[in-house]
Design a protein around this nucleic acid. Sequence first.
DNA 1: TATTGTTATACTCTATAACTATA
DNA 2: TATAGTTATAGAGTATAACAATA
Lengths: 149, 149
Amino acid sequence: MGEELKVTDALVRLTHLVDHVFADVCREADLTPQQAQLLCMLIDGPVGMTELSRLLHLEKSSLTGLVDRVQRRGLVDRVRDGNDRRACRIELTEAGERIGQESHRAMGERLDALLHDFDGRDRDRLTSSVSRILAAHTAATGRPWDRTE
Amino acid sequence: MGEELKVTDALVRLTHLVDHVFADVCREADLTPQQAQLLCMLIDGPVGMTELSRLLHLEKSSLTGLVDRVQRRGLVDRVRDGNDRRACRIELTEAGERIGQESHRAMGERLDALLHDFDGRDRDRLTSSVSRILAAHTAATGRPWDRTE
DNA sequence: TATTGTTATACTCTATAACTATA
DNA sequence: TATAGTTATAGAGTATAACAATA
């Protein structure tokens, strides 16, 4: 029963499920999902506003307010770019780093619980399938969908 | 390179990618993602506010406004419940049905494009993996994450 | 001229608390 | 008393358009 599920519908349902898990984890960290996603993008180092708006799929003007609120909470800082005096780079504070890592850990834990009956080969296969999808998107758009890819 | 990707991180990245695709499709239909998700939940028939708020992971009070706006656009109607005079059921109008179907089709098309190099067996394996994850969540929460499962 | 980022404005989305009406 | 749904309020998220400063 339910075996006629189309793969595209399966992906949509999986996405909504992971979205809900993410929302729960954010809530526990007292972050909105948007704020948490912002922190995620900064894990590997500071990023400028224009690049961030591309990564988050947001207008720059929307990003300004988002960064304002996260900065007000002490999780990120705006640092001036040495080479371009128009630009600034957003970087995690120590507190932001801590909360980001903790949320990432909590997210991994929740998802791992859903994968409890996946053995090593199952996981590798799933990871590999996802990688192919991400690669297809990168090839189609000419740019990686996020910087950690 | 990148082969040490953890399966949980892979799921998160996939989710964000599908979220972006969904946002694009919604934008083309001149819907917000939240409005589109609401329409999705009504495809198989009318649903009451309390059940909808569970499906969408939203407080009932938040849902009231969302339904107001979608109703104002003529995509859904509130119909009184014959058995319980407190309750109402939200149902798609003809226009809502049309837009919902069209968005679903566009979503499938976009995702199919990302799966262009998946053969039948690849798709079945992926679908089956996703089904196991959805089932694990259903088992853990005692309730299906959405009504179409 | 083009680019980086912000401001102003008007919506939409969301939660909390208090409420109405019905069960 | 409990449940279905709404209202009031406040804050967060978002896009469009206009802007400032720098390249």
